[in-house]
């Protein structure tokens, strides 16, 4: 991956990730998250993983985040007042973030990533055929278990949505966006 591509991209991605945390407005936070996920797909393209990039955009930047935004716009959340959070909360957040950074850094330090060195890519790296062969041979069990998990989630969502609403819920006025 060319450094001329990597560093500007890295700056943009970090800016997007910061935007998720620092924005008071939930819609803008969600939009920053969309931008971050979209930029991650650009890395995948630069790393020859076209299929993963397309799936990243379809699933995360597309489907998941659209539903996030859909819910947020319907809930009509007001911008978070900044003075509601206590300094204790901020300190705790900063502390856990630092702890996570240390743990991740230590883990990265201890392992050598096979792709980090400038080794030539194996034949057909990142193509759909190679990925599919791996998925349906070596990782078949994990793949099938994941699909069962997703099926359970879908059935669960339908069951929850199908539950008869109580009369009190029906009478409640629909939430509207106040001017």
């Amino acid at each position: 991956m060319s450094p001329y591509l990597f560093y500007p991209l890295a700056c943009l991605t970090i800016a997007g990730a910061l935007g998720v945390v620092l924005n008071n407005n939930p819609v803008r936070s969600a939009l920053s998250l969309v931008a971050t996920l979209f930029l991650l797909a650009v890395y995948y393209i630069a790393l020859q993983a076209h299929l993963v990039a397309a799936l990243q955009i379809i699933v995360y930047a597309g489907a998941v985040m659209v539903l996030f935004l859909f819910v947020i716009t319907l809930l009509n959340l007001s911008p978070d007042p900044a003075d509601r959070t206590s300094p204790l909360f901020g300190a705790a957040a900063l502390g856990s973030a630092l702890l996570l950074a240390v743990v991740l850094g230590r883990a990265l330090w201890a392992t050598t990533l096979p792709g980090a060195a400038n080794t030539p890519l194996p034949e057909g790296f990142g193509t759909t055929v190679v990925l599919a062969r791996q998925l349906f041979s070596e990782y078949l069990v994990a793949f099938e278990l994941t699909s069962i998990l997703l099926l359970v989630a879908v059935v669960g969502a339908v069951v929850l949505a199908k539950r008869d609403p109580s009369p009190a819920d029906m009478d409640a006025p629909a939430p509207g966006r106040e001017a």
């Binding site: 076209h50 397309a54 955009i57 379809i58 930047a61 597309g62 489907a63 659209v66 935004l69 716009t73």
Partner: peptide, 22 residues
Amino acid sequence: GIDVGILYISATVAMGVYGVVL
């Protein structure tokens, strides 16, 4: 010359929803 062309089209179509929502 993208080798997952049809998925690329699905991906961009999926991104088109944002304009409408926002």
